[in-house]
């Protein structure tokens, strides 16, 4: 439906196409549902878990000792902004599984976080260099408001899947909705298919 009197295109246009319904944002907006958790690096842990059992756990220093990657990606938030060419440094999710000697056969994982946030992901979307635990953004330590010390980074899905203040990945049999997914947001969240909400 054409909107009477709407012409659009008043914003600076991105240098290349972005997914449908998105606009180009040159800042880095913050969207969080609660108080920003503050985590001391000496207490920080990242785990791969099943049920309530931690199968493998890394301290901050142990994580930083793993092979690191520089990642340059576009970010797409379900609230419609897209950020181009953001630069991150982190460890691929594959690396954690390899180092721990854990086969990731399960279909889905639940990312869980300091502060209580959760989000569900198909293992497929984290495998083969598609998902990371990242702690550096555009050359600086990731700020607490943006998920620091470290957040999950899954750039090909809407950004709520890139869980802030990541604490670990819980292996699941079958899929289950996380925090936003229970509240009407899509179970997978592919920006190219505009999977924002239930039924998209």
């Amino acid at each position: 439906m054409v909107t009477r009197g709407f012409f659009g295109l008043k914003r600076p246009q991105p240098p290349r196409p972005i997914p449908p319904g998105q606009y180009w944002e040159q800042g880095f907006p913050v969207l969080t549902a609660g108080v920003t958790p503050r985590i001391d690096l000496k207490d920080w842990r990242f785990s791969i878990s099943r049920d309530d059992q931690e199968l493998a756990t890394w301290t901050w220093d142990q994580m930083k000792a793993l092979p690191q990657k520089d990642i340059k990606v576009d970010i797409h938030c379900v609230t419609k902004w897209s950020m181009l060419d953001s630069e991150w440094r982190g460890v691929a999710v594959d690396t954690f599984f390899e180092v721990a000697g854990i086969d990731p056969p399960e279909d889905y994982v639940m990312a869980y976080c300091y502060g209580g946030y959760t989000t569900n992901l198909p293992m497929e979307d984290l495998r083969d260099g598609k998902g990371f635990v990242a702690w550096e953004f555009n050359g600086d330590a990731l700020e607490p408001q943006h998920g620091g010390p470290a957040r999950l980074l899954v750039p090909h899905l809407y950004f709520w899947k890139s869980a802030k203040w990541i604490r670990g990945l819980r292996l699941m049999d079958g899929d289950a909705p996380g925090f936003w997914e229970q509240a009407g947001y899509h179970m997978r969240g592919d920006p190219l298919k505009e999977e924002r909400y239930w039924g998209d």
């Binding site: 944002e25 040159q26 800042g27 880095f28 907006p29 913050v30 969207l31 969080t32 549902a33 609660g34 108080v35 609230t79 902004w81 209580g116």
Partner: peptide, 13 residues
């Protein structure tokens, strides 16, 4: 902190 819910909008919008 568990009783506090927040909603934030970005610098532009």
């Amino acid at each position: 902190a568990a009783t506090i819910r927040t909603e934030r909008f970005g610098p532009t919008g």
